[in-house]
Amino acid sequence: MRVVFANCSVEYSGRLDAHLDRGARLLMVKADGSVLVHSDGGSYKPLNWMIPPCTLRVREPNEDELAIGAQEVWEVSQKKTDDELVIRIFEIIGDYTHQLGMEPGLVKDGVEAHLQKLLAEQVDRLGEGVSLVRREFPTPIGPVDLMVRDGEGGHIAVEIKRRGDIDGVEQLTRYLDLLGRDPLLTPLRGVFAAQEIKPQARTLAEDRGIECVILDYDEMRGLDHPEDRLF
């Protein structure tokens, strides 16, 4: 990655035209070819950018550009469209290049695997007398997250999501249809558990006799302390 602190102006043309007057900015050139223009504000969002596939060409300023003090000009062209980003640099304050190497990827805290493990250890949240049968209980179309036995000898198939939407309810419905054909699992019901469940998904689940359960990830990890709350 190359990062350049520069006094520059920016022109963008293509699907829309945009202009940034001369000012101090951070220019980022990433290994994938993308070019981003940042200011000291606006959180993570750049003022302007060009995504790959694109090409960056650095040229000498023409007479008009020399007259206004430009030292060099970056022309970034999008290969699939006519979009072009022109950055006129008047002063380079700092220019640094560093190879970051392969990105191992973002591991999100509170992903479904973590929620599944926690709920497997705390299945009593699903009702009194509930016990775990198995995580990743197999079906012909893939495993349901948890299979548990309720206090009355029946079974509960539990599907776990970070954000519960209609697709998750449909997925659990298919599991229930297949699992319900096994007489050893009847009576069988479903629970749709998530940190957040969209209203449409809740309506569909309840219409199909599926119970919805909201999971508080911090509280399940023991990080939530009710005595510290103001309300």
Rank of each mutant, 00 (worst) to 15 (best):
Q116V: 13
H38M: 15
A70M: 08
V169K: 12
G110N: 08
D207N: 12
R135G: 03
Q195V: 10
G190N: 04
W74I: 10
L184N: 06
C8Y: 00
T81M: 08
D167N: 13
D124W: 01
I51E: 05
P143D: 01
G94Q: 07
R181H: 11
V29D: 09
H155C: 15
G110P: 08
D83F: 01
A67K: 15
E219P: 10
I197W: 04
R2I: 14
R149T: 05
A205H: 01
M1C: 08
V148M: 02
L172H: 02
L115V: 03
F5D: 12
R135E: 10
R202D: 01
D165N: 13
K30E: 07
E227Y: 06
L204G: 04
V213C: 03
L146Q: 02
R15D: 06
V144I: 12
V107F: 11
L115E: 01
P52R: 11
M102E: 14
D95C: 06
T203I: 11
Y175N: 10
V37R: 00
V73C: 10
A205N: 02
I214C: 14
Q122I: 15
N7E: 12
S9P: 12
H98K: 12
T55W: 02
E11K: 11
V107Q: 11
L56N: 08
I92P: 01
E11C: 11
E159I: 05
L36A: 15
R59V: 15
G14Y: 00
A193C: 09
E63A: 15
H98V: 14
L47K: 09
L27N: 01
D216Y: 10
Q78K: 09
A70H: 01
H155S: 15
S39G: 06
S131N: 05
Q122S: 09
L172N: 02
R22D: 04
E206N: 08
V130P: 02
N48D: 12
R162V: 15
F192E: 12
E72G: 06
L16C: 07
Y12V: 14
D64M: 12
L119Y: 02
H19E: 05
R59I: 15
D40L: 10
Q71M: 13
Y44T: 15
G127H: 05
E196D: 09
Q99L: 13
T186Y: 02
L126G: 03
R135Q: 11
L179Y: 11
I214F: 06
R22G: 12
I197P: 02
V169T: 11
I166R: 14
